[in-house]
């Protein structure tokens, strides 16, 4: 394991007798699979036909995470700003795709607006986090940039999906009312307002709810990871608060931007919803 000398002394001073988490051998990791035996057995007795899906999901998880492990190792070893930025840009592109895939909107038409609505808040908040909050010298340090960036992206993904879905399906469902508002108000923005409000509320409500209950029942994953990694709890908690706030801001702004940036694609020049933006369900 590679660690800087500075950290070792600090941890030793604080009386930490163990640095980081204990490594797991493949065999000990595999030992966890033993509990699958009763699961399979009960599934069979109850005739739950999910054994196949379950096995498939577990195998996929292992393969995907192994790959992540390999290229993270690679990224951390080189720790090159350019490489890190490219990695995050690729992640954003993949995020765009999965957003659009699960939102019934056509990928080709919406890719660019969604890409930029993710990129702007993400880049600003990530750099702020590294420069002002953590105060690291190398803003593009892989150790901070990659995991924090990943957490921000993962959460923005969810909120943009909810936001865009809510917005466009809301107008589609309510098209007569939307058009009638257009005829009364003669302003596109004014007619869109109720759908816009609704989509923002729907997309940030889950994060607000989780901020309100965090720590009451479960320990957040990031905190658990940090504590296992050798941080003292109070440091882990500070990071957790910082990341929760950052996630909330990134979600909030990227959802608003995703709706605003997509208006040009979503509506024709007479402000009527384009019907060809939806993936036709077969």
């Amino acid at each position: 394991m590679m660690t800087s000398g500075k950290k070792i002394t600090r941890l030793k001073l604080k009386g930490g007798d163990q640095l980081g988490a204990q490594d797991l051998t493949i065999l000990s990791l595999a030992s966890l699979l033993i509990f699958l035996i009763p699961v399979f057995y009960i599934n069979r007795r109850l005739r739950l036909t999910i054994n196949k899906t379950m096995t498939f999901a577990i195998i996929r998880m292992c393969i995907q995470l192994s790959f992540v492990g390999i290229y993270l190792e690679f990224l951390f070893k080189f720790n090159s700003p350019v490489l890190n930025i490219i990695y995050l840009l690729i992640m954003i592109s993949i995020a765009c795709q999965s957003i659009l895939r699960s939102s019934n909107l056509k990928i080709l038409k919406f890719f660019i607006p969604v890409f930029f609505s993710l990129l702007f808040p993400f880049a600003i908040i990530l750099l702020f986090f590294n420069a002002v909050v953590v105060r690291i010298d190398n803003l593009f340090e892989a150790k901070y940039m990659i995991p924090i960036g990943g957490m921000l992206l993962g959460n923005c993904l969810r909120s943009i999906i909810i936001g865009l879905n809510n917005f466009y399906s809301g107008i589609k469902k309510d098209e007569k009312t939307y058009l009638y508002s257009l005829s009364l108000f003669c302003s596109h923005i004014q007619a869109l307002k109720p759908y816009f409000k609704e989509s923002i509320i729907a997309s940030i409500t889950p994060t607000i709810a989780s901020m309100a209950t965090i720590g009451l029942v479960s320990l957040p994953g990031m905190m658990t990871g940090q504590i296992l990694g050798g941080s003292v709890p109070i440091v882990a908690i500070k990071y957790q608060i910082a990341i929760m706030l950052s996630i909330f801001y990134a979600e909030y702004f990227s959802t608003i931007l995703s709706v605003l940036f997509s208006l040009k694609v979503g509506f024709n020049e007479l402000d009527v919803l384009n019907q060809n933006i939806f993936v036709s369900k077969k």
């Binding site: 309510d174 007569k176 009312t177 058009l179 009638y180 003669c186 302003s187 007479l270």
Partner: peptide, 25 residues
């Protein structure tokens, strides 16, 4: 003509009462 250029002006001159009076709730 009913185009982007004039649409706001045209809509401002028309009062439309739709069959179901689709006012937002």
């Amino acid at each position: 003509n009913i185009t982007k250029e004039y649409i706001a002006e045209i809509r401002h001159q028309i009062f439309y009462l739709s069959q179901d009076i689709d006012l937002k709730n």
